[in-house]
Design a binder for these strands. Sequence first.
RNA 1: GACCCUAUCGUCUAAUUGGUCAGGACAGCACCCUCUCAAGGUGUCAACACGGGUUCAAGUCCCGUUAGGGUCGCCA
Length: 485
Amino acid sequence: MEVRSRFAPSPTGYMHIGNLRTALYEYLVAKSAGGKFILRIEDTDQERYVEGAVDIIYKTMQMVGLQHDEGPDVGGDYGPYVQSERKPIYQEYADKLVDLGGAHYCFCSEEELEAQRKACEEAGIPFKFRDPCKKLSVEEARKRIAAGEKYTVRQTIDPKGTVSFDDCVYGHVTVEAKTLDEGILLKSDGLPTYNFANVVDDHLMKITHVLRGNEYLSSTPKYNLMYQAFGWDIPTYVHLPPIMKDEHNKLSKRNGDASFQDLVAKGYLPEAIVNYIILLGWSAKNDEEIFSMAELEKIFNIEGINKSPAIFDIEKLKWMNGVYVRNLPAEKFHELALPYYKDAIKRDIDLVVLSKCVQPRVNILSEIPEAVDFIDALPAYDIEMYVNKKMKTTPEIALKALEEAKQVIAGMTDWSSVEAVHDPLLAMPEKLGMKNGQFLWPIRTALTGKQCTPVGAVEAVYLFGKDESLKRIETGIEKLKAALA
RNA sequence: GACCCUAUCGUCUAAUUGGUCAGGACAGCACCCUCUCAAGGUGUCAACACGGGUUCAAGUCCCGUUAGGGUCGCCA
């Protein structure tokens, strides 16, 4: 049988990391088995609907390379793929479930429910809704409905015995039927709740593998009861552990935690984000960690999914992003870096060479502006910066280095490449009886005014060119002279 | 509170389905390389939550304890 999985987000805003991971796993479960991946929009809660959220979903899936085979935009044989457009279907199946004894009509108002809840609270007993409408006959109930009375459809559960199901990651789970709530399946606005819609849609769309967060673990028995009442095949369940912000809190938008688009905006590459979050709850069971989507489509397997929560570690993501940044073709990196240079650099310099220097030195793209901030204006720096123990420099040595450097640079004529500047400069230390660092550290310091930069002395001289290099070296010489006087 | 689930280095995880010096990665630390900083290389620190069983042998199986998470919405 063809594997069919689905990603079924609610259009409520940004794509959260947890959602994205679920989508990724769903996609990979299908693709690794040569199956189909379906996108279904679960918009049955009109109050939470956010304008534009569906576009974010499309855009995100496209960015991470999740191409769905069926969905609202691409069509398919089991549509519509937007739940609000499936209203008549749910009505039909709700009525059917009532006929099958798996549900009943309920006329209780929210106030009545609240009253019962309150009474239980005051009495100190756990609340369990006891629906007076269960006593109504179906005929009587339908008469009232025909008369225009407002109603909902509630699941009917036989409290005797136990209900169990099998989950690919959590194994066999059994609960006592009496602990199950007879929840609302069809709301008074005629739209289904998730509890009903997911069962009906997954069946109708021939979904074979249901992946979702493990918060659904405790309601899954209720879904099985419905599948059974309808006489439908039960799908393969794959419940996923949560992604945590820390030991106690889930990663969530409410906490102000980063969404996928926030991370992209911060300069993380979609491929790196995907690679990282795949590893939050799944492993290839070997020592490999860097995977392309194409590889994952081959090797992903449900057995590798973990059952305990995973804490989102931004440090490791940073590292992994760095791996991806360094693996980028130079031209690609340059292209991605350009927008960051645009705001940070006004001076006319060789940006391609700058990119070569920057690429191996940043983990996330947003580190670029700070890394190149010395280019437009020489930062105010302290004379102490010329003293470097490891380079064995002192203000005296620095002064000498700068004065010599000034002469060489003034005499240099070939600025066609980094190498062209490199050779005359690197010939100096030996000539002067200095160590490379003693000569070059002061130059880089004078040119950049920073403790560390993505460029070395040679690259700095090349990038700035003769005039600016000499100007900054002169500034350094004056500083040193003033300090030594 | 009831019910369900979970438990290996600080973090993500592995452990040919009971036999390992408990492996890898990030982070940390040290060293090497080196014109700064990175990158790279080498090394190092660091874990089976606790208590009982079962067994010749338990991180692995069972029970309990503890700690965490989830569900108990006309939200998903």
